[in-house]
């Protein structure tokens, strides 16, 4: 793996992926006013005839997408993560239940979104979508992996939810390494045997920094970019269970129901394993810069390091 470098926001990767997918005439894009924010505007500018603008009406958008999928299209529908939640039942009953391949993108996910405040900070999207049978749930760590994973959705064949971030994050992949990514397969960014840090989205770069710090004190942590929360890569979790002593999960999401919960659920089903979760404790966010909020809510490399040391010391 190459060292992290400066990158864009994962929403930029979504936008560029749509353009790359445009050569397939089945691809259509649906917007609910926020195309400039989700970056579907890039597709719209080039292919207005395959873009459907539905105004600020997310419930309608989800079912229009479903109808188009039933007619042989491959719809990509985006809005803010939080506003997809307004249409949760539409996603559940109108898209996932009949098994229609609609790809939903919720941008501006997590408290990382920043100054807009708690109304815009979805910290429960991964949890709720994870409960829907057959729905794939993805949260990429950087722009380049967001692009790659979105491109892979073309042949995915079933419904998905992808959360992207508003703000820039360090790039975890390069042009070559990103090609190794596969929906449903965790990506090992760093090897280590003492414990595993399993992160997703904007917390992956924090996890890498934490692993460096831990290495300085002789703790050898592997780092996983678990970009796909569902289906969860249980094969990789089995490997970790065999070689590591514990897991720290890290996500810009409530500790209830997200990546940490998914990992803990699996680990308890195979006999139990020490899991510590770094995430938003049961509370709403607030206005503030991305970095101030992450600091204030404990979504930091330092918190990961603290939890990791706690795990190692308790053994």
């Amino acid at each position: 793996m190459s060292a992290p470098s400066a990158g864009g926001a994962s929403r930029d990767g979504y936008g560029s992926a749509l353009l790359k997918l445009s050569s397939d005439p089945r691809v259509v894009v649906l917007e609910a006013d926020l195309g400039k924010s989700t970056k579907s505007c890039l597709f719209r500018a080039e292919f207005p005839e395959r873009t459907v603008s539905l105004g600020i009406a997310e419930q309608n958008m989800m079912l229009v997408a479903a109808g188009m999928a039933s007619s042989g299209k491959i719809p990509f529908a985006s809005t803010f993560a939080i506003f997809t939640e307004r249409a949760f039942e539409q996603v559940r009953n109108g898209i996932a239940r009949p098994g229609l391949p609609v790809h939903i993108c919720g941008s501006h996910g997590g408290i990382h979104t920043g100054t807009d405040g708690s109304s815009a900070q979805s910290i429960e999207d991964l949890a709720i979508y994870r409960t829907i049978p057959g729905l794939t749930v993805i949260t990429p760590s950087d722009d380049i992996s967001a692009e790659e994973l979105t491109i892979q959705l073309l042949e995915h064949g079933s419904a998905s939810y992808t959360r992207t971030a508003r703000n820039k994050t360090p790039r975890m992949y390069d042009e070559e390494s990103v090609k190794e990514l596969k929906i449903g397969k965790g990506s090992v960014l760093r090897d280590g045997d003492d414990l595993a840090i399993i992160a997703c989205g904007v917390m992956v770069s924090e996890a890498m920094e934490a692993a460096s710090t831990l290495a300085g004190s002789g703790i050898d942590a592997c780092v996983i970019d678990m970009h796909t929360i569902k289906p969860l890569d249980t094969e990789l979790l089995d490997d970790i269970r065999m070689k590591c002593g514990g897991i720290v999960t890290a996500e810009d999401h409530s500790v209830i129901g997200g990546l940490g919960s998914a990992v803990a659920e699996y680990m308890s089903s195979v006999g139990g394993f020490p899991v510590q979760m770094v995430g938003v404790e049961d509370r709403f966010g607030e206005s503030g810069s991305s970095s101030d909020l992450m600091e204030s809510l404990g979504l930091t490399r330092d918190e990961i390091v603290k939890r990791a040391r706690g795990l190692v010391n308790s053994r």
Partner: peptide, 11 residues
């Protein structure tokens, strides 16, 4: 249903 039908008709 009307939203779904709209998607079918646009397609």
């Amino acid at each position: 249903g009307l939203s779904f039908g709209l998607g079918c008709a646009i397609s």
